[in-house]
Design a protein around this nucleic acid. Structure first.
Lengths: 237, 237
DNA sequence: TAGTGGTCTAGACCACGCT
DNA sequence: GCGTGGTCTAGACCACTAA
């Protein structure tokens, strides 16, 4: 963990490790800059650069006079503007609803392993659920959760709480990958999203990793004419 | 341009201005850190922080012993992995081809103004072209170019060179917005992309602004089953 | 008001890579 | 070689804000 090139990187990796491992949970107060400088035997400026990087990462928040605190795990919206679906619906001024459709635990089959990127079989939780906006179907969610990484998910019903926000609060994630594609609606989508046959749908697949392996893979199917993904940026980030 | 809060920000904004205005074109060598420090009357460390930020932004590249240079305008892939279509095709080990289908100059109509976000009418260049991979249609491009911002485009034929790379080399851009949606193929798409009727397509619309106003709006239509957009990221950027 | 982060300085040493 | 950027230091002052 401490065998990097520069002093920055070693301290950064060290502190990141404390956070993503959960040793310093969200809300935990980090040592002060002066103390960290003493601990690592470096100047305060060096520690400051590390902390600035951690702020840019969104891993910590800093308040004058109070100190630096591990941030609550944030949604991915920072980079790709895919909000929490509840927020997304509510920003349209529509009533949000959630319904669990299916929930099964099983030994991972070949397809599960491909989706999650598993090298060996584990137990997985397979969840199908529907998000509604103004009592109309809005988004169909098909999710796999790797129980080897999140064993406590096996004991959670997901009847009231959608798996997305639950996982976000429960598991620190370290990286994610999205793929976006257009497909014609399959039978499930036609029925649950009330579409006409073969209507174009936008499918967003998000694969999330934590420290130690794949956490979850989710496929969100939106009716194509009712949803767009947007991303705005400048060269200067 | 120099009325910000911190010394960093003022110097950063100043240098960014030189670059996006085109005063310092791609390839231009920036003054050395020591000289900039002298010019702005600050320490070298302060300049160094600014330069580090510019590198993160992708606006400059730095080489030891040589100096710092304004970077070639990069595709947006830095943030959202949408490559230049030519690169995209060639990374699939397929032969890339480009064909101009239509090219007209006209006074902007209401639809043009909506797409480009124009407040008043200007002349626009309307281009339709096709990108092919291995002699099969790959992507249909419908583009509007704001001639008030890029007058020299009126004199360019776009027979050999696609408008995307031409604009990238010609016009510095300051911000861009993507929207991604799924639609059923329209008649043009069916014919030119050789699709079956109402096949699902992925439509990526990119609106680009330069200093002074909207530059171009492009709609890229991909067969949905042949294309995915991916975006990978970590909380640590 | 006192402690904390935010910012900046004027040095320094080093590694890299042109020449 | 030698100039450049990369990194780091040991201070300093200021602004903010929680106590």
């Amino acid at each position: 963990m401490s065998g990097d090139t520069t002093l920055h990187s070693r301290i950064l990796a060290d502190i990141e490790g404390q956070i993503v491992s959960g040793e310093w949970p969200p809300g935990h107060r980090l040592p002060f800059e002066v103390d960290l400088a003493a601990q690592y035997g470096c100047s305060r400026m060096t520690v400051n650069k590390v902390m600035a990087q951690l702020v840019r990462s969104g891993l910590i928040e800093r308040r004058k006079k109070s100190g630096s605190f591990v941030a609550q795990p944030k949604a991915q919206s920072a980079v790709l503007e895919i909000h929490d679906i509840k927020d997304e619906v509510q920003s349209l001024k529509l009533a949000y609803g959630y319904a669990l459709i299916a929930r099964t635990v099983r030994r991972s089959d070949a397809e599960d392993m491909r989706r999650l990127g598993l090298s060996k079989g584990t137990d997985v939780l397979d969840i199908t659920c529907l998000h509604t906006a103004g009592h109309e179907p809005f988004c169909l969610e098909k999710r796999l959760i790797n129980l080897a990484m999140v064993p406590q998910a096996a004991d959670f019903e997901f009847v009231e709480i959608a798996p997305g926000p639950w996982l976000l609060a429960e598991v620190p994630w370290t990286s994610a990958q999205h793929t976006i594609q257009a497909i014609s609606a399959d039978k499930d989508a036609v029925k649950l999203l009330k579409l006409s046959a073969h209507e174009a749908c936008l499918v967003i697949e998000r694969q999330t990793w934590g420290q130690g392996g794949p956490v979850t893979n989710v496929r969100l199917t939106y009716p194509g004419n009712r949803h767009v993904v947007t991303a705005q940026f400048k060269p200067g980030g």
